[in-house]
Design a protein around this nucleic acid. Structure first.
Lengths: 365, 365
DNA sequence: CTGAAAGCGCTAACAA
DNA sequence: TTGTTAGCGCTTTCAG
């Protein structure tokens, strides 16, 4: 039955037919647990994503679509392979978190983890047991495979658009939390560009927490402190905060984009509907999911080897909050697809790199 | 090790400690496949949901949030139990569909299927192998367990609000596709109410396909055919179509809600932002997921027994497109939590009710 | 090409 | 309380 089912072995056509008939009659489906046990492969990967419980839809909820798109990307890649996907949502402070991760790790051949949920020590522990790919993590991460969007060139495209096209020179930065790697990337790209180019400079900054609320606070602060001398442009680390700034400015009667430009990052749905519609940067979420999954499958097939960081291009989405005419919606791809080698000496990887009886570095396919 | 890990058996405290120490040192996690094989239980359930690939966010995409919320409900229920969840997205015409379902059914203890993806013959086949719960299916379904929102009382609440509060008597109905059970429920509830109450009556209807586009078509048709004598209210089978109608009316210069009311169903996010904001009915998606999952777990524990339909209350969301003042946002729970017995004689269930070598009715745990 | 049998890693029943 | 062992259902040698 096994031989017929998988078609690998040579089986006499008549036998095959006879067996197949019974398979069909019984609607036989093999027990996956037994298969996995025997094959030492479960053909299942796990993805750990963020839980956020919200009773009502709002702008914050919409940013969750980000994760749902990643999931869809992962699943579609997996479907091509005949594998399946287990999903676990974890809150930032879930007390059962570790236990759930552990239990999950026994049910899968590999794990994908969305940045910001799993503490790095837990990540290292997981990585000792199964291959792990980090999604949207720190591109400086050298110990685990990761797939990220190119936040830097997205930011640069945004600033260049502001400065070169709209001549907005005095930039105010609404930053994200220091703990968020993507906020870090965006900030450092912004600062780097401003340091290299005399045409624009920073007139102030505010550290928010990625929420609309903190964007409103930033906007109010700007109005209060720079009222006589508003910045030319507000560069926000994400769309939620940009929407908050827009709201604060609307309340204060400040015209966007006439008086000041506002731009965001992420391209969440409400950014499209805001007044004025928000110029932002789009991340290829679905592609991120697909690539992360592809990378994980490679790692499962070949656990040894150096971890890599894969960086995906983003899209500058030009709408009207930057100063372009209302109704504008132009998408420009920025950045390129980069793959960088990490560091083979990392502790997490070091152990994984030498599975029983194998020297690292050998490419097996 | 097994005894220590699960704590069931009496193990000497010293032995337990000694064993636990090694477990910790090795960071031992049991192989779930071997456990499942031995226990005859995988502690995994599958959920089959709809795939819809959309390169850009728009109103249609937002309606997908519906499914994502269900998934989150399922997962949270499962987490309480220490079980895991496998997700499969299926397109309506996926040629690999059957194969994927089959393969999935070998990996799980039970399946939840979102209405409208799996043909009923395939559903029956699945139900022979594993317990199946249908989500948002036809409440007339008597052969499989199902969990649905109470579309009927939601519709009734909507119409009563329109007729009794706003005196909108001449109703136009923008219907959903005949194949959709929820559209069917909403339609028949509307017709039933109108038949029983003389205060309102139908002046026309249009059959759409749940898309914004078809809503626009409906709106244009209404404008063209009823221009001199517009209906008092347009009752749409979902929010997307209501938004389409709103758009068509805006283009035609028809004032909503002054001249005519428009209401939707589902409470998708863009309904909140439409001009005017849409009065609609909210379904408790997350709860639907939780209840469906709970029901499935019960069925897995006790496969025999009569299938049930569980109906969850909805919320009337009163905003301004019905005629209430702009800025209104009132939520009123309607309908009650109902559980109805299905038919134990159904073929799908009949076979499941007697697993090999067992007479039904024996509770095994 | 087909049949037989040794595991895969675990649980649970039984013996000690 | 602890040790031993027979499966769980499948894949994959190895013999024939």
């Amino acid at each position: 039955v096994s031989r017929v089912l998988h078609g690998h072995d040579r089986v006499h056509p008549l036998t095959r037919e006879r067996v197949q008939k019974v398979i069909d009659e019984l609607a036989y489906v093999p027990n996956a647990s037994a298969q996995s046990l025997s094959r030492r492969r479960k053909e299942v990967v796990g993805i750990i994503s963020v839980e956020r419980f919200r009773p009502q839809y709002d702008v914050e909820t919409m940013s969750l679509l980000f994760y749902d798109e990643i999931l869809r990307g992962v699943e579609s890649r997996l479907a091509d392979e005949g594998w399946s996907c287990m999903i676990t949502f974890l809150g930032p402070e879930d007390p059962r978190g570790l236990a759930r991760l552990q239990s999950l790790s026994g049910k899968v051949d590999g794990l994908m983890v969305v940045e910001g949920i799993v503490a790095s020590f837990a990540l290292a522990r997981l990585a000792e047991r199964v291959p792990v790919v980090v999604i949207a993590g720190d591109p400086k991460e050298r110990l685990v495979d990761s797939v990220v969007a190119d936040n830097r060139s997205g930011t640069v495209a945004l600033v260049e658009h502001l400065v070169k096209v709209h001549r907005r020179r005095r930039i105010f930065h609404v930053d994200g939390p220091v703990s968020a790697p993507d906020a870090r990337e965006r900030r450092s790209a912004l600062e780097g560009w401003l340091a290299r180019n005399r045409e624009g400079w920073l007139v102030g900054s505010y550290t928010g927490d990625f929420s609309v609320r903190s964007g409103i606070a930033a906007g109010e602060r700007i109005v209060a402190e720079h009222d006589d001398d508003l910045p030319d442009a507000i560069v926000c680390a994400n769309d939620q905060m940009a929407i908050g700034v827009l709201q604060a400015f609307a309340s204060a009667g400040i015209a966007v984009p006439e008086t000041v430009s506002v731009v965001g990052f992420d391209d969440i749905y409400p950014a499209l509907l805001s007044q004025p519609s928000l110029t932002t940067v789009h991340q290829p979420m679905r592609l991120i999911g697909e690539r992360a999954c592809a990378r994980l499958l490679e790692r499962i097939a070949e656990p040894s080897g150096v971890p890599r960081v894969e960086m995906l291009p983003t899209e500058l989405v030009v709408r009207s909050s930057c100063g372009c005419p209302a109704g504008t919606e132009q998408r420009i791809e920025v950045g390129r697809h980069i793959e960088e080698e990490g560091c083979a000496q990392g502790p997490a990887l070091a152990r994984r790199a030498r599975p029983k009886g194998r020297r690292g570095g050998v490419v097996l396919r």
